[in-house]
Design a protein around this nucleic acid. Structure first.
Lengths: 72, 72
DNA sequence: TTTCGTGTTGTCTTATATGATAACCAGACT
DNA sequence: AGTCTGGTTATCATATAAGACAACACGAAA
């Protein structure tokens, strides 16, 4: 799996969990201290995010990093 | 677990796997197309690496991303 | 229709990761 | 002594992620 695929998978996983918890992109982004526009890009896999950003998102979603990267 | 801890854990995991496979930082870095100095920082958890960089390293080490992030 | 909620996209600045180079340290070996 | 090998650290330029902002699309509900 290459970088592009992984980023898309990570984004999809984030979106899946977010929707499962009934949170809007807006609110998730706000919890992470950034704009919904950036969250939209992240969920679309269009941003090569850092571990720091991913950890922030995991924190707000209240999931472990390994839950996001599971099977990758 | 916060960002700092996670980065240190990821770095340690990379080093562990690299040494297990008997590769030098030099060679791992070369396989990733960057310098040993950067690999040193990454293994020390002193660089907030992107998913792209992590995927590159996983590729050269021939491990899955989830093997690195396991239990985090 | 208008308004609201949610998400997307483009563009901008600033912060920082990437990547290169050089100097350095510690062991091992000659 | 010198000379490898492996790793660390400092500094630099460049690429790009982070973060903010505005405009837009679309469906639902008023």
């Amino acid at each position: 799996m290459d970088k592009r695929e992984i980023l898309i998978l990570i984004g999809s996983r984030i979106r899946e969990i977010r929707e499962l918890k009934g949170i809007s992109q807006q609110d998730l982004a706000a919890g992470c201290n950034f704009e919904k526009s950036n969250m939209s890009r992240i969920e679309a896999g269009r941003s090569n995010i850092t571990i720091g950003t991913l950890v922030k998102i995991c924190d707000v979603l209240n999931v472990k990093l390994s839950e996001i990267t599971n099977n990758m």
